[in-house]
Amino acid sequence: MTFDTLKCAATLENLNQVIEFVEEAADRFQLATKKKFGLLIAVEEAFVNVCHYAYPDAGGDASISCGTDNGTFVVEIADSGAPFDVLSLPAPDTTSDIMDRQVGGLGVHFIRTLTDQVSYRREEGNNILQMILHKAEDTPP
């Protein structure tokens, strides 16, 4: 699989650039609109997490890579911050009423819910979050 990669500073100013990069790749792959919409939310959540938490002391970069393999679209978001697996966070509370509702945890919930497969690995000093979408409408079991 070959990847197209965008490397940029992990700051919110670059969010639009990141989203456009992934959207263009998803369009070339002809990912269904509904799946693409979900993917772009997941990508925002993952990139914003890197912007907020990967580099608490100084700035750093994020790498966003898009690749395709047969019927599969793969996005990887990498940072070189301290080891951290966003998928280790607990599921958010989605049932309590308005005053008790907490604002945290929704981002990773969207990453899990809006992709077909998601995984984390630590590789050569980088945190890499891999998100996979299948081209077919139906999500395989």
Binding site: I41, E44, E45, I98, M99, R101, V103, L106, G107, F110
Partner: peptide, 19 residues
Amino acid sequence: EYISSAGLRALLATAKLLK
């Protein structure tokens, strides 16, 4: 056209304040 968790967070924060 689009809302992410950051948008929901803003909605919730203002709704709590209003309450």
